[in-house]
Design a binder for these strands. Sequence first.
DNA 1: AAATCTTTGTCAAGACTATTGACGTACTTA
DNA 2: TAAGTACGTCAATAGTCTTGACAAAGATTT
Lengths: 419, 419
Amino acid sequence: MSGLYDRRMPRTKSGSLQSLRRANQERLLTLLLRKGPTHRAELARRADLSRTTVSTIVTELMARGLVVEQDGDPDGDGRAKETLAVNPGAAVALGLDFTFDHVWVHLSDLAHNEIAGAGRAVDPDLGWAERIDVAADLLERLIAEHGLDRGRIVGAGVGLPGPIEKATGIVSTSLPDQPWSHVHAADEFQRRLRLPVAIENNTRLEAVAEAYSGAGRGIRDLMYVGLSNGIAAGLILDGRVFRGAVGAAGELGHTTINVDGPACPCGNRGCLVLHAGIPAVLGALRPHLGAKATVEDVLAAAAAGDRACEGVLADVGQMTGRVLASLCNLLNPERIVVGGELARAGEVLLDPLRTAIRRYALTLVREVDVVPAALDLGARAGAVGGAALILRERPGLASALVELTEPARKPAEPAPIGR
Amino acid sequence: MSGLYDRRMPRTKSGSLQSLRRANQERLLTLLLRKGPTHRAELARRADLSRTTVSTIVTELMARGLVVEQDGDPDGDGRAKETLAVNPGAAVALGLDFTFDHVWVHLSDLAHNEIAGAGRAVDPDLGWAERIDVAADLLERLIAEHGLDRGRIVGAGVGLPGPIEKATGIVSTSLPDQPWSHVHAADEFQRRLRLPVAIENNTRLEAVAEAYSGAGRGIRDLMYVGLSNGIAAGLILDGRVFRGAVGAAGELGHTTINVDGPACPCGNRGCLVLHAGIPAVLGALRPHLGAKATVEDVLAAAAAGDRACEGVLADVGQMTGRVLASLCNLLNPERIVVGGELARAGEVLLDPLRTAIRRYALTLVREVDVVPAALDLGARAGAVGGAALILRERPGLASALVELTEPARKPAEPAPIGR
DNA sequence: AAATCTTTGTCAAGACTATTGACGTACTTA
DNA sequence: TAAGTACGTCAATAGTCTTGACAAAGATTT
C-alpha cells in the first residue's frame, strides 16, 4: 500500500527520547482525528499517558494551531471538561477523479467537510497530460477563489479508470485506446503536485467515499458495487481498502453467468456486464424506447411505471445478485452498497438483487444488508473519496501535520502545481 | 480479530518512560522473530535505535534466555558481526485441529519447528467435550514425553469444522448434528487450556500452515483452496488471515456453476461441490470402480493411467478453475495453493484448473500462479497451522515472551490443562 | 445555602532512558 | 604489514515522563 505514497517521512529516530515527545504528539493527534472531540483526561486514559503529559503536549499542539478548544457538553460529575478537537482548518486533503469524460477536483478539511469542489467535462479523446492540465487549472482556481495555502495540502488521492499496478503505480489497462494506458501515474502526479499521492481505481475511490462518509460508515467488511457501463466492486476488508496482488481486485463485470451466452470483448462468453451493463440495458430497450434513449430516460420511464423498463432493471438486479451471492459466500461482507448510475433506479433494481442474494447465498452470509449509495454526490463521489482516502490511509498524516507546523521551519516552498 | 484472543495484556503504560524500555525490548524481539537472525548494528538501523541501546537491551534479553548468539556468516567489511537470534526453545505454540473423525495436536517452537505432534481417530459421533478430553490427553502425553514446561506455551490455535462467529467465538454451523454446533468454543478452550486461544475454521488453518511454512510463504495475497468432501478457501489478504464479517468467509463449494444442475442440500441447484466434491467424484466413478472405492483408489488408478479416473479428476480441476477465475477477478491473488485430499492427484487435476483460470480470468489477474500444497503434512496441516497462527498473529507475543521471563516473577501457576 | 464529593487541569521535584562522542576490537583489502 | 572499515562498549549528558500535591469547577447531599 505504501508503494503509492511518497515516502519522505520525517526520519525521526523513533524510540529515541527526542522523538518520544514527537511520537506522543502524533498519538494524541491521531486519537483526536479518529475518535473526535474529547478532553484532556480522556485523552490521557486512551493514550496511557499522565494528565500532566497530555497537558503539556496539548499546549504545544494548540500553539501550533493543530488543536482548538470547543465548548463541549458539560456532562458528568466533577469539574467541567475542556473539550478539545482537531482544528479542521489546519490542513486540506485533495481529491482528483478522472473519468472517461470528466475531471473532478475536491478539497476537504480534516473533518471531511467539503471546502471546495469543481468539475469539467472533457473530450473523451483528450490525452492524459491535458487532463492533468485541466485538473491543475480547476485546482488553481479553487485555491485562488478560497484563498487556500498550498503548503497545507497534505496529500492527493487520485482516481483513474482501470487497474493500477500496486508496485509501480502504472495504469495497466489492456485497452490501448485509453488515455491513461501504461502511464506511470504515481510519478506523474508526484511530479506535478509535489504532494504525497495515492493513485486508485475510480470505483475503489467511490467505495472509499461511501465507506468513510456515506452508506458504509463504520463497516469493517464492505463491498461497494458500481453499476454503470462497467460493473466493478470496491472492497473494504478488515477496515482497509483492498487492492489485490497487482492492484486489479474488484472486477465483477466479467464473471461468467451464462456459459453459452454471447461473446465478450474480454474473450469469454456470457459475462455479467453483457447482460447488466448500461449498454446492455439500453440495447434491450431500444425496440421499446428508440435508439437515442439514455440512462436518464430509462430511469424516468421506470419511475413512471413503464413495465418494460422496470423489467429490464429488475433483471439487472437479479443477475447481479446472483453473482454477488457467490462473492458473499467467499467474502462474507457485512454490507453491500450499490452505486453507479443504474443504482438510481432504486428498489426496482435493489429488491430483485436482495432476493437473489437471499436465495443463492448460504445461511450465515446472506444476512448481509444491501443498501443504495447514500451520497447525493453522483459523479463527484470519486473525488470525494480521493480526499477521504488521504485523510484515512495516508501513512503518517499526524506526523505530517506536526511537521507542517514546526515552529522553526523554513517558509513554505512555492509548491508549483502547474507544470 | 482480537475478539478471539484473551486480552490480559500487561497494562504497561505505553508512552511512559518505564515502558519505553519494555517497548524497545519487544520491538527488537519482534524484529528477530520476523526477520530472522541478525547482528546488533543491523537491529539498531532497523529499529532506529543507537547501537548502544541495542547492546544493553540485547544483554537483558540474553540474560532472560530469549535471545542467543549464533555463528552467522562473517561476510562484509569491517569487524565480524555477532549474529543474534531468538532462542527457538524459549517458548512453545500449541495447535489443535478437530476434524470430523480426528483430533490432532501439534507443538511448535518459536522458529516454527515441530517439537512434537500426535493425532487420534475418533468416532464421528463423539461429543465436543469428549473431543477436548482426547486433545487434552494427547497434549498431556506430549508434554510429559518431552518434558515441556506448561508455562512456556504462549497460546493455542484451534481448528474446528464450520464457520466461527468472529465476535463471540461460537461455532455457528447450520447443521444441527455437528458436534460443535453452537458451542462457545473460545470460552471452552479458554477455560480448559488457560491460554490465549484463537479459534479458527479448519480450512483457514490449513491456509495458514501453507502461508507461513508451506507453498505460500512470503505471499501477501494468497488463496488456499481445500478440495475434499467440501470445497472451501482460506484467504490471506494483505498478509493477514481474512475472516469476513461474521467469520464465514471462504465458502466456495456452494457457488452455482450450473443453474439447471441437481438440487443441493443447501437449497440451491448446481453447486460446485455437487460436481467436484469427493462424494461426487466417487459417485461418478462408481460404475467404473465399484461402490466401495475410496479416494485413495481413485488417485492410485489415475496415477496408473486409468482414463476414466483421470477424466473425472480433470473435470474437477476444470470446474474448480472456472469458479476460481471469477474469484481471481474479484480478489486478484498472487498465488493459489491447492490442497485437500483431491489435490494429491497432482497435474492431472491442476493442469485443467490452470487452463480454466487462464481462459476465464482477465488478463492482469490470470498471471496468478497455481501450486499444489507443499506440505507433506497431510491431515496434520490444520494443527500445524494453529501453532503457526499463534506465532504470527497472536497480539503481543513479544510482550508475553518478555513477561514470561520477568526476573522477579512468581513461580508459574499449575496451569491445569485437563478439567 | 453550605458542605462534601468528584473529577479536571497545573505545578515542582525526581526517576529513568536513550543519545552523543570516543575508544578498543576484529576482520578485509592493498 | 599497514590502512580501511564496521562493530560493540563505556562514561557523561540531555531530555521526557511520572509521581504526589494542590487549586479549580461543577454536582450532590444535608
